[in-house]
Every structure is written in structure tokens, then in C-alpha cells.
């Protein structure tokens, strides 16, 4: 069971926090500085909460902790004027998803909770409530 690993990512997981360079580059999630990068050049910035499905798959079965549902929809979401984000689609049936579907950010539990385990919360996307 991981604990600190999830805590470290709270900004990205809960708020889609990435970082923007003074030259305008926006990346997600915030990354460790590469050799030669200056911390002062990067500021935290939240990605837009809206996006569109850029690609998707409906996974049957799944890895441990993700194998208790008949399917899981995972998408590459093109966030508005920002980076792609890989995330589950929730509140969405397989026949509702298509490339271009407008989606919005929600925070949900990720993975099946285990007894005595930390509950992991993080970003997912759902079809936009108000089209």
C-alpha cells in the first residue's frame, strides 16, 4: 500500500495542477526539474476543467484494483487549450463515448478500495452536464 506517494500528488490528482513555464509552455503534471531548468521559470497552474475526448478505449478486465467492473473507459482527454490527460471516464456508458465528446473534470475514487487501505481520490472526466 502506498501512502506518501498519493499525498505527494494531491495537486495534480485533485485539481489537475500542472505547471507553466514563463515561455508559455504548460505541462501536466508538475514535473521534477530537468537538468538546466530553473524552478523560478515554472509556476503551478490548474488545467481547464473542460475538455474533449481525444481517444478512448473500453477495457475489459483490468489490472489488480481495477478488475471489479465489467469495463473501464479510459480516455486521452484534450483539455481546453492545454495538455492531454489520461483518465477514466465516469458516469458514462461505452455507447456514449466518442472522440470529440465534451467532458468535464470530476474528483472520484480511483481503484477499488482495500480494507485498511488509503482511499485514493483523483481526477476523472464525465460527459459534460451542461452541453
Amino acid at each position: 500500500m502506498n501512502i506518501a506517494k498519493h499525498w505527494r500528488q494531491n495537486g495534480a490528482r485533485y485539481r489537475l495542477e500542472g505547471q507553466r513555464h514563463r515561455d508559455g509552455t504548460l505541462r501536466f503534471p508538475a514535473q521534477s526539474l530537468q537538468p538546466g531548468e530553473a524552478a523560478a521559470d515554472w509556476q503551478p497552474e490548474q488545467l481547464a476543467r473542460q475538455g474533449e475526448v481525444f481517444s478512448f478505449t473500453v477495457q475489459r478486465g483490468g489490472a489488480a484494483g481495477f478488475d471489479d467492473a465489467p469495463w473501464t473507459i479510459i480516455a486521452l482527454v484534450q483539455t481546453a487549450a492545454g495538455p492531454l490527460v489520461t483518465a477514466q471516464l465516469t458516469d458514462c456508458a461505452p455507447d456514449e463515448v466518442a472522440i470529440g465528446l465534451p467532458v468535464e473534470l470530476v474528483v472520484r475514487r480511483i481503484g477499488t478500495p482495500v480494507a485498511d487501505g488509503l482511499l485514493v481520490y483523483g481526477y476523472k472526466f464525465r460527459p459534460r452536464l451542461l452541453m
Binding site: 481517444s55 478505449t57 477495457q59 479510459i74 486521452l76 472522440i99 481503484g111
Partner: peptide, 24 residues
Amino acid sequence: GEIEAAHGLTTTGAWALLMQRYLY
């Protein structure tokens, strides 16, 4: 690990994402 597998993506799923986009 942190931005793909942690969300349930499998290796097969990753290739499926590429295929879906390719088809499109």
C-alpha cells in the same frame, strides 16, 4: 506509473488508445 497505470490503464489499453485515434 503515476499518470497512466495509476488510473487503470493497461498496456493493451494504451495500444487501444493509439488504435482508436488512428482509426479516427
